[in-house]
Design a protein around this nucleic acid. Structure first.
Lengths: 231, 231
DNA sequence: TGTACATCAGTGAACGCGCGTTCACTGATGTAC
DNA sequence: TGTACATCAGTGAACGCGCGTTCACTGATGTAC
């Protein structure tokens, strides 16, 4: 079998990732060098985390999934955790991008845009459970990976900036502390995502969708700060 | 070595758990039968989760920690996950008890008691990180273990009942939906606990303690519902 | 009260397995001249 | 343009280890009579 891959699932994944050999040698066969192993390992990690959870993902498994010998990953990562941290960094990067895109400069109205950002948060947790798990449940040390730290800060600052804009536009006095506001919104959104937006908890007994729940939460909260949410 | 225990840490643990032999044979020696293995396994699981996290806890490890052969646990649990679910069930039980105790029939005032309940939530997450991890991060299926399900429902219903009391006492009209209110408070409290009350996230950049943060969050939220928080 | 016996909760040896890690190696790539 | 060579990114075999799981067993406990 090509690349030493043993079953069809994995081959499908390879085909998906590498465009059915189009980007490689004309016959789809890989040479002695992989050429893109680092990326392939990250992709493999995501597949495996999605399938078996963060706990059930091993270094050797990632190598196998990428169609490479178990020693190969050591050329790129010191150990499993280093790879995982890199996955999380990618996660935070995409996450920050998604939040920023959803904010869309606060148009048409800041409060509307903030709600859209909340929806984007939930959507990310739902569409990228593997990334989300690597970011928030793998127990990796944020400070161990500079990029991880930087991107997670960027995500938070996007939210904080949005809060600043919402507050400024509302003319509420005195202005509520924006840092606190951002921390509050982050915590209730994260709580909603982990408790309700994924299979974990009492999903069947929810009276409304996680999105509706979060939106109501935000409106009540902003109202409590004295911000006119219909502005 | 007594009981086949190999190092001092474990012996210390045994002494702690079983009162230095006071409850057992006079010389502290265990007989062929452990007599309390199920409990000992749960205690061992907690120690191990606290030390190495949920992921790094194995069935064999629990047996070793309890001073018993690796085959012994099979008399009580089918596998690691069944044991873990039992640990989580204990966790939810203590958790529900803690919330109920903190509520204290809503005295002296419902809003004060609700805040106390929030603090109790954070305190539990902090003082019992192993239980908390088993309950919320182990990825166990709540419905797989009836007691787990029952106790987690009891905890949630305690919160819901508190919300009901707070709303009733406030005379706000129209009455906000209590179920939604409970879900909101649960999510922001859980979010605060996981994001800020444990080492995971940007702890150093917090402008206030998780307790203060949560209290402020609750007050703003209740205010947003039209509830007079100084009542 | 004593005895026989069923049942229960543990032992310990054994097994196959997959993981992490290392090692000397080898094929491919890029570059100096 | 061709050639020699350094460097790089893989191989694959090997190892020790601990885990999960099983098995026939055995010692302790409880109960019937």
């Amino acid at each position: 079998v090509i690349c030493g891959i043993g079953d069809h699932d994995e081959f499908e994944t390879m085909r998906h990732r590498f465009g059915d050999g189009g980007d490689e040698k004309t016959d789809g066969r890989r040479g002695y060098h992989h050429g893109n192993l680092k990326e392939a390992l990250i992709a493999a990690a995501l597949d495996l985390i999605a399938a078996k959870g963060v706990a059930g993902f091993t270094f050797a498994d990632a190598a196998r999934h990428a169609g490479v010998s178990p020693a190969a990953p050591y050329r790129h990562y010191r150990d499993r955790d280093t790879l995982l941290a890199d996955v999380a960094a990618r996660g935070f990067q995409q996450f920050a991008d998604a939040l920023l895109a959803a904010w869309e400069h606060g148009r048409p109205k800041p409060v509307t845009a903030l709600k859209r950002m909340g929806h984007a948060y939930l959507a990310f947790a739902r569409k990228e459970p593997a990334l989300y798990a690597a970011m928030f449940e793998a127990g990796i040390d944020l400070n161990a990976n500079a990029e991880c730290r930087r991107e997670s800060d960027r995500a938070f600052n996007t939210l904080k900036q949005a809060c600043e804009t919402v507050v400024s536009a509302s003319n509420v006095t005195p202005k509520p502390p924006v840092m606190m506001m951002a921390l509050h919104i982050w915590s209730c959104t994260h709580g909603t995502a982990t408790l309700y937006a994924r299979g974990d908890r009492a999903r069947q007994s929810l009276p409304m969708s996680p999105e509706e729940l979060l939106e109501a939460h935000l409106l009540v909260y902003l109202g409590g700060l004295g911000i006119d949410t219909r502005q």
